[in-house]
């Protein structure tokens, strides 16, 4: 890597930011699409392992679609301001958003969301699949999921589990676990799962359903113990860790996924073009390697499959939220 290469890499991005910032609302002709750089809104704070997915995707989608894709963080609670920005943008296919399960959790969790996920947005493709990891404090006698379950049932109300906040996937996975097994444990929310590891190593937090990216540094040298992953098949970065399903909790499936969405009014031919480029980008070995390092796997889909997927996820979490009486005000 030298400076010249760096400049070459930066120059188009700098140039295109000019275009992106001055949206030209010409009627988008599907055959000439894409005629200018595409803006990919990432509705969460920059940094952290999850940002990596969005930025890697932007880079390689740009290569397969033939125009630069510029990632832009528009932060705000629950990803709502960023998503709403895309909902309200011109439906020309030049403004897209990548969202996580908060997309379909928010409508049940929050009193109001300014847009309707199923009416105002359409899925272009799925992006990835990454399981959560059930990790326990090293002081816990349990070495397997079965032992953990026995231990948890024998100590009702004594265990704590941490999460990245109310209504986040680690929280809901914990609630779903409690609902399906009858285990009684206290939920302790943090501002990010990474924050809770100090308390887990000190034994103050007994277990957590952590993102794989968050867990990796701590499980690698056994400072916390991974017992199971929450996907239905084993995860590549945890080949020796069983799935919850294998370990005895049949059908337990929690995924920290992302989907690429566009405003609902974007014409189908344009969506088809982006989808085609997405499928190509997600099949690249570079993308696979980059995702794998943070415990994610690229998963592409057709728009219809993507729509069915988020619908089923919506139903799944709606039930967990309602049964657990989890509601924000």
């Amino acid at each position: 890597m030298n400076t010249a290469k760096l400049i070459r890499r930066l120059a188009p991005a700098l140039l295109c930011s000019l275009f992106v910032a001055a949206p030209i609302t010409l009627p988008a002709a599907a055959q000439s699409y894409p005629a200018k750089p595409i803006k990919l809104v990432l509705p969460y704070a920059p940094g952290g392992a999850t940002d990596v997915i969005g930025r890697t995707l932007a880079q390689y989608l740009g290569e397969t679609i033939g125009q630069p894709v510029v990632a832009e963080n528009r932060t705000g609670s629950g990803g709502i301001p960023g998503t709403d920005y895309v909902v309200r943008s011109a439906p020309d296919g030049y403004t897209l958003v990548m969202m996580d399960p908060a997309l379909i959790i928010n409508p049940t969790l929050l009193p109001s969301v300014p847009f309707d996920v199923f009416k105002d947005l359409q899925v272009v493709s799925r992006v990835n699949s990454s399981p959560l990891v059930l990790v326990v404090t090293p002081g816990m006698p349990a070495k397997t999921y079965a032992e953990f379950l026995t231990y948890a049932k024998a100590n009702p109300g004594k265990l704590n589990f941490s999460s990245a906040g109310i209504g986040t996937t680690p929280h809901l996975a914990g609630e779903m676990f409690k609902q399906q097994t009858g285990v009684d444990a206290v939920h302790v929310p943090y501002r990010g799962i990474g924050q809770s590891y100090t308390d887990m190593m000190a034994g103050k937090i007994s277990f957590a359903f952590s993102s794989a990216a968050g867990a990796l540094p701590f499980t690698k040298d056994e400072r916390v113990r991974p017992l199971a992953v929450t996907s239905l098949k084993r995860a590549a970065i945890y080949p020796n860790t069983p799935t919850m399903d294998e370990a005895g909790l049949k059908g337990f499936d929690v995924d920290l996924w992302y989907v690429l969405l566009a405003p609902a009014a974007v014409p189908a031919p344009i969506v088809a073009k982006i989808n085609e480029a997405m499928v190509k980008a997600l099949a690249l070995p570079e993308v696979k390697t980059a995702f794998a390092k943070i415990g994610a796997e690229p998963v592409s889909s057709t728009p219809a499959e993507g729509a069915a997927f988020i619908k089923s996820e919506y139903e799944k979490w709606k039930k967990v939220l309602t049964d657990g009486n989890i509601k924000e005000q």
Partner: peptide
């Protein structure tokens, strides 16, 4: 947050 990002970068 900056440190969180550097951890992300290392993991990559």
């Amino acid at each position: 947050p900056t440190m969180a990002m550097m951890i992300g970068a290392l993991m990559i």
